[in-house]
Design a binder for these strands. Structure first.
Length: 581
RNA sequence: UGGGGAAUAGUGUAACGGUAGCACGACUGACUCUGAAUCAGUUAGUCAAGGUUCAAAUCCUUGUUCCCCAACCA
């Protein structure tokens, strides 16, 4: 585990799940001579998301928990038409950011191409693989259906020598794409369609991001993956549930070759409420311009979460709490947010910022005067110390902290009512100024000089404490407020057993009708306390009483931009909701 | 219609024949210079029906529902 500024030293106790149980049992029985070697094997064809984080934390976590344990980072780059170096870079960055370290063990499937080729030749010589000239359409026809057996290819009984010759010429580039493939000779009548003479190699005259044009035949997943695991002496090859049907094939190849044979174990991938997880849908959002790129703070991508202000520790803790099982479940995104707030609460410096400013004039405060008031940086961490915040005659408070006709249970400012300004003074509202449209534009208040710092010497109480900034000292900022990608209706609680990405009752085709049109709100007239002038992109704060915010990369010296990472829990909002009903 | 998997409070996950527990959520209350945090408490569950057993979430039988599989994707 990498120790960085974001590392969370109290990642909670060691988790247990059926995968770790298998690892522990194997350790006890000595099955792998005491070794534990896992791997995270992404195909570099897109960006990593929180679902990948689950797999990453599982694989790297198991390695970290066991003495001498190793987890390889391996790029499964067997399909040059979909893969790019750009994705390799982003995946490396994301896994590292999440806090994991693979040491020397960074691998590429493409590094094994020659070895895989040699193994294929071995299989051909053993009469267990053959070159097939059927077209893709014919192949589909010969494969049969889920309920009816397939039939043998007319090329199935080609002589070994002919197969050897043809396969070599495939490699030499003598044939066009799609004209021939190498297939394993297994069983065209198998109830498992994966075993109906699966394809091992296809011809692809395409540029590979690492091997360039060195190869024009490429191994398929089923052929390649077990070999990659075998070559790297993986002990536990952990993958997601949809590969369960492929395990017999994984085993068949390794047995047919008589090589080192890891154990494949499958677990359920992560689904989250209120968002989408499939690469296809994420891509659709990006391409349709419904979000601003892969790192849009609304995206469940690692880069999106990072820009949003998530901490790696929060994501790791989330992955620990959701557990690992074989039930295809959908986790409530509230759990992710809980882990986030828990971490942020401990580490974020507090500041004051006003999102929707309402001007307040303190009538009895001397004109032109200003003073510095001491504020605590983080009540959860005394070592964070204090800072000074300027106070003056004209202030801004949050518009929603004032109501001219306060309903029951509204504790904040109202005409004639006294409240506390955090770390400053008690103030009482004496007058409400409106414009021609009846819109409240300014409040007049008086302050009690005896309450300096926020305590009243006579022991009188106020029911609310408000955040504020001094008008002349505060600095302008843009704040971006984010909400869920999917609307509440239909997005919240999927029925048990509904499919993976389907956190909605909508069909695959019209899932976009469930998109939340208000997932982004940009506030351009915010005011923040002057200590934020030096905020650098990536720095995180708690804006008191509002939530957690982080400085966006769009931020510059003359324009501060903050993303709301998460709001604080809001009891008043709940009360309001109830009152409306 | 074939094959492979899975079903435990609203959600996620434990319990490996012996007291169904934990977390999140929701709801009370205490505390509070953040209606935050914290603390205390409440809430609610074994897919169904049979069977074996002193005892079943767990073993057996039958059924139900959901997921995955017929790319030269992974």
């Amino acid at each position: 585990m990498i120790e960085n500024e974001n590392s969370n030293n109290n990642d909670s106790a060691r988790p247990t799940d059926f995968v770790r149980e298998i690892v522990a049992d194997d350790l006890k029985s000595g099955k792998w001579d005491g070794r534990v070697v896992t791997r995270f094997p992404p195909e570099p064809n897109g960006y990593l998301h929180i679902g990948h984080a689950k797999s990453i934390c599982l694989n790297f976590g198991i390695a970290a928990e066991n003495p001498g344990g190793l987890c390889h980072l391996r790029f499964d780059d067997t399909n040059p038409t979909k893969e790019e170096a750009e994705y390799v870079e982003s995946i490396i960055e994301d896994v590292r950011w999440l806090g994991w370290d693979w040491g020397e063990h960074l691998y590429y499937a493409s590094d094994y191409f020659q070895q895989m080729y040699d193994y294929a030749v071995q299989l051909i010589k053993a009469g267990k693989a053959y070159v097939c000239d059927l077209s893709a359409d014919e192949m589909r026809e010969y494969r049969g259906s889920l309920t009816s057996p397939g039939k043998d290819s007319p090329h199935r009984d080609r002589a070994v020598d002919e197969n050897l010759d043809l396969f070599e010429r495939m490699k030499a580039g003598e044939f066009p794409d799609g004209s021939r493939v190498l297939r394993a000779k297994i069983d065209m009548a198998s109830a498992n369609v994966n075993l109906r003479d699966p394809i091992m190699y296809r011809i692809l005259h395409a540029e590979h991001h690492r091997t360039a044009s060195e190869w024009c035949i490429y191994p398929t997943y089923d052929w390649a993956h077990g070999l990659e695991d075998s070559v790297e002496k993986i002990t536990h090859s952990v993958c997601t549930l949809e590969f369960e049907n492929h395990r017999p094939l994984y085993d068949w190849f390794l047995d047919a070759l008589g090589v080192y044979h890891p154990q494949q174990i499958e677990f359920a991938r992560l689904n989250l409420t209120r968002t989408v997880m499939s690469k296809r849908k994420l891509l659709e959002l990006v391409e349709a311009g419904l979000v601003n790129g892969w790192d849009d703070p609304r995206m469940p991508t690692i880069s999106g979460l990072r820009r949003r202000g998530y901490t790696p520790g929060a994501i790791r803790e989330f992955c620990r709490r959701i557990g690992v099982a074989k039930f295809n479940s959908t986790v409530d995104i509230a759990l992710l947010e809980h882990c986030l707030r828990e971490d942020l609460n401990k580490r974020s410096p507090r500041v004051m910022g006003v999102l929707r400013p309402l001007r307040v004039v303190i009538d009895n405060y001397p004109e032109g005067q200003a003073e510095e008031l001491e504020a605590i940086n983080n009540p959860e961490d005394p070592s964070a110390g204090t800072r000074n915040v300027p106070f003056s005659k004209v202030l801004y408070i949050e518009r929603e902290d004032f109501m001219e006709e306060p309903p029951k249970k509204f504790f904040r400012l109202a005409p004639g009512r006294e409240v506390r300004l955090r770390y400053a003074y008690f103030i009482t509202c004496t007058d409400v100024i409106k414009d021609a449209d009846g819109e409240i534009v300014e409040l007049h208040c008086t302050y009690d000089p005896a309450t300096r710092g926020g305590d009243s010497p006579d022991g009188r109480k106020v029911k609310a404490t408000l955040h504020w900034v001094s008008a002349e000292h505060s600095i302008p900022a843009e704040v971006r407020l984010y909400d869920y990608l999917l609307k509440e209706k239909g997005g919240l609680t999927p029925q048990r057993g509904t499919s993976a990405g389907v956190c909605t009752p909508f069909s695959a085709a019209d899932w976009k009708s469930n998109l939340n049109p208000d997932s982004l709100e940009v506030l351009t007239d915010c005011r923040v306390e002057p200590s934020l002038a030096a905020a650098v992109p990536g720095s995180r704060y708690q804006f008191e009483r509002l939530g957690y915010f982080c400085t966006d990369p769009d931020s510059s010296e003359d324009k501060l931009v903050f993303n709301r990472t998460a709001s604080l829990r809001d009891t008043w909002a709940k009360i309001q909701k109830k009152q409306k009903k």
